[in-house]
Design a protein around this nucleic acid. Structure first.
Length: 99
DNA sequence: CCCCTGACTAGAA
DNA sequence: TTTCTAGCCAGGG
């Protein structure tokens, strides 16, 4: 009855791999899940099944938080020691050049 | 099978 | 700098 697709399974695994204090963008999650163009699908998945998943550790590519839960998300991020300046939490993922 | 929606992204104005 | 548009993906009707 749990008709979860491979996409859903992969994305969930990536989300569960996120540790407290770590932040990633929808695109990064999708890419690590094996779907470099599935950022939108990732957001859709969290909307449907965010239970049991650290959805608050996922932010937009520009650092802005998710619209319908930005307030709650900000509280959770700051609770994990993440500085949310002007509602912007940048990904903690390593970049190509380091900055 | 076709059409629409959405917790997205990159590029143009 | 901000705002708008086109493109992409999966799910639901």
């Amino acid at each position: 009855m749990n008709a979860e697709s491979e996409f859903e399974r992969r994305v969930k695994r990536v989300l569960k791999g996120l540790e407290p204090g770590e932040v990633a963008t929808y695109g990064e999650v999708a890419e690590e899940a094996g779907y470099p163009r599935g950022a939108r699908a990732v957001g859709n998945l969290l909307k449907r099944s965010s239970d049991g998943l650290p959805w608050w550790r996922v932010v937009r590519a520009d650092g802005s938080l998710a619209a319908p839960h930005s307030r709650e998300q900000r509280e959770l991020l700051e609770s994990e020691g993440i500085r949310v300046g002007d509602a912007r939490a940048f990904s903690t993922r390593p970049r190509g050049n380091g900055i």
